[in-house]
Design a protein around this nucleic acid. Structure first.
Lengths: 234, 234
DNA sequence: GTTATGGTTTACAAATTATTACCAAAAACC
DNA sequence: GGTTTTTGGTAATAATTTGTAAACCATAAC
């Protein structure tokens, strides 16, 4: 989230003290909070400010929160969260079925509320800004979508495991990675401690990355610990 | 659709009694539930069956649920829900921050669990397929009703299975799909593990999509895992 | 120096995948 | 109904990728 593009949250809550507490906390976390106490103007407000998230109480003067949720769902596709003291599970089910994405019980710790808000926003944003999928690693350019690697425009023909290995290094640039970890990344199963297959793959990868026994290895061996890819040496 | 439309849920839970209870209830609600007790095979299973939702316990033999969640997040974009008896709010926050979409406490009423599952699935489906009859995939345009595919206006003459295959890729854009999954989508029955018919169909499809052995394949082979269609390479 | 441990590489076997060919089944056509 | 055409499944074969073992090299401890 950029600073000039604060996330906007519409908070519909008739308890003024609670609303202020939440606003204060969320403001400190970089959100812009619109407070609204009555249920009657929510639809209008939603249309006007297009919030990134709506937090709804259920007990509201003027209009029931469940009703509001149903009403605005057809026009508002963003995430809606109920925040209410009503612990009745039937009502929780109703809330979720009326189109809400989450139902949080009061009282709630601010950190937990934030975590749930972020989970919703993350999911909602996920599809819109999904594709920034080019990793740079020294002179190499790794395309995560295409699963291809090019060096200065020229394609490297890596096998599936070689690619996974390189990708793992790229994701942990500058870190020493153990065989256990590398193995689990490539094979999605634990390392048995004997298998030397990672060594062999590393060897192949070094060859394809243009290493010779003379030149300085860009995949360094850290004795007794694992391997380290030095992007600068690529 | 040619296959059964059942929603597939991967349930990772070491308490066998509870797992069976949940499975029984969800099966009655029209879901297909895969049960898994150990945390070690989750990544592999996820890749194989491409579930529509994953329910994770945190206390698991072999591997911690939080760790699993983090590990599979890069490969699995679908909704993940924690279902656990741990009421510690710090852990709930950790769970949500590790990429999960919901965190539900045991014991939970079945109806409430269902409501939360549906809320997640509803949101996820809404984000992806806007119930359109025309799917775009790179330069291809797939008409679901007519079951036709055109590339820049020009019709591709695909057979029925070839179309189903392509459609499956289109619905899971950017995901590696296992033979198991592709087979089950095309044939509505489980894969016996030997059949090489998917390979042959893939080969045909590649030819019809205009691939040659020289050009970069738009259907990539991910060794030991399956196939990946790269829309950008179409 | 020597020794033990860990790492590298090569070569080859095994497993996986690609492609072609061929026949059976289904559909389309007469 | 019978014939042609298309499609699908299986098997055979080729190509590729991966696993394993073994021989060789490097490092650390002594």
């Amino acid at each position: 989230m950029t600073h000039d593009d604060k996330c906007q949250i519409l908070l519909v809550e008739d308890d003024l003290r609670l609303a202020s507490l939440i606003e204060e906390y969320l403001s400190g976390q970089g959100f812009h909070v619109y407070k609204e106490t009555s249920g009657l103007k929510v639809a209008r407000l939603t249309a006007d400010i297009c919030p990134d998230l709506i937090i709804l109480d259920i007990n509201l003067p003027g209009k029931n929160g469940l009703q509001i949720c149903q009403d605005i769902r057809s026009d508002y596709q963003g995430p809606i969260m109920f925040l209410t003291a009503r612990t009745d599970s039937t009502e929780q089910i109703q809330g979720l079925e009326s189109g809400a994405d989450d139902y949080v019980l009061k009282p709630v710790e601010p950190q937990l509320l934030l975590a749930r808000i972020n989970a919703l926003l993350r999911r909602f944003r996920a599809d819109n800004t999904a594709s920034q999928q080019e990793l740079m690693l020294g002179t190499l350019s790794i395309n995560l979508k295409l699963r291809t690697v090019t060096r200065l425009g020229e394609a490297l023909n890596l096998s599936s495991h070689e690619f996974d290995l390189l990708l793992t290094f790229a994701k942990h640039s500058g870190q020493v990675l153990s065989r256990e970890y590398l193995f689990s990344r490539v094979y999605s199963r634990p390392y048995d401690g004997l298998d030397r297959t990672i060594d062999v793959r590393i060897s192949q990868l070094r060859k394809k990355l243009g290493e010779t026994s003379d030149t300085a290895h860009c995949i360094k061996t850290i004795w007794g610990r694992g391997y380290l890819l030095v992007a600068e040496a690529l």
